[in-house]
Amino acid sequence: MNDIEGRLQAAGRAFLAAAWLRLRQERVVPPPAFHPYMEVGRDYFGDSVMVLAEYQALEDAIAAAHPRFGADLPLGERESPSGLIFSFLETFIARLTSAHEEFSPDGPPPSNRYTTWSRQSRRTRSRSRAAGWFPT
């Protein structure tokens, strides 16, 4: 694992733990089994997790992973890490809910869920959103 991948995985784990706790306080998670698919703006407010220091750290790690997120690019060519972050969070919640798994920020991390996600953030152009970030 290289430095960028390690930074993405660590930031991803920290963000998921912090976001889970915040969304649990707001009674958003865990969602019911018949409605595992969350959507920012519909099921929770983006600002609820965007204010977290872990969100900013993950956004910075993603931006450092690939030039397509660079601040020096014109707005029409630059991508925003926020779309990746919300998809990452929503896919994580859906996968946990569908698998009937419990998540504890203090427990062992759901390990394999970060590797493909960190690779996805480094691709030249994203063809899929969160669907390709987790193994089946």
Rank of each mutant, 00 (worst) to 15 (best):
Y55A: 08
S128N: 01
D60G: 08
D106E: 13
Q120V: 10
R42W: 02
W20F: 07
T136Q: 12
E90Y: 08
T97C: 15
T124Q: 15
P105S: 01
V28Q: 08
R42F: 03
G46T: 02
I93V: 13
P108N: 09
R129P: 12
F69Y: 15
S121M: 11
D60W: 12
N2Y: 04
P110K: 01
A18Y: 03
A64F: 06
S80F: 11
A10C: 10
N112P: 13
G41Y: 11
Q56P: 03
E54K: 15
S80W: 14
Y37H: 14
H66P: 05
N2H: 06
F103E: 00
Y55S: 02
H66F: 08
M38Y: 08
R123T: 07
A17L: 00
T124I: 14
L52K: 09
D47E: 13
P135S: 12
R68E: 00
A99G: 12
A130P: 13
S87L: 07
A99C: 09
I93Y: 00
A61V: 06
F86A: 13
S98C: 06
R13F: 00
S82A: 07
L21S: 11
F103A: 00
G46I: 05
H35P: 03
R24A: 08
L21F: 07
A99V: 05
F134P: 09
P30V: 06
D47W: 14
V49R: 01
L89V: 07
R122L: 02
A63G: 05
R13Q: 05
Q9P: 10
L21D: 06
H66N: 13
V51N: 08
F92D: 00
E59R: 15
F34K: 15
R68S: 00
F88D: 03
G132Y: 04
E90W: 05
E90H: 09
E90K: 11
W20H: 10
G41A: 13
G107W: 00
H100T: 10
N112G: 14
T124F: 12
M38G: 01
A33N: 11
V49E: 00
S48R: 07
H66S: 15
R123F: 03
A131M: 06
L73T: 14
A19Y: 04
D60V: 10
A11Q: 10
A131T: 02
V49L: 00
R27I: 04
S126I: 03
A130N: 15
S98F: 06
R78C: 01
A53N: 11
A61P: 06
S118H: 10
A99P: 05
S121P: 10
P108Q: 10
S82H: 13
Y55I: 04
M38F: 05
R13A: 00
E39V: 15
S48C: 01
F88E: 02
E101A: 12
Q120L: 09
P135G: 11
R119T: 13
S80D: 14
W133P: 10
I62T: 03
E101D: 09
A99H: 10
G41I: 10
N112R: 14
A64D: 08
I62E: 03
A99R: 11
R119I: 12
Q56I: 06
L73K: 15
Q120Y: 04
F34A: 15
G41Q: 14
R125F: 08
E39Y: 07
P110Q: 01
L8A: 12
R13K: 12
R27G: 03
P67M: 05
A94G: 05
N2V: 04
A14S: 02
R125N: 07
E5I: 11
F134M: 10
A18M: 09
R24S: 13
D106I: 01
R42P: 02
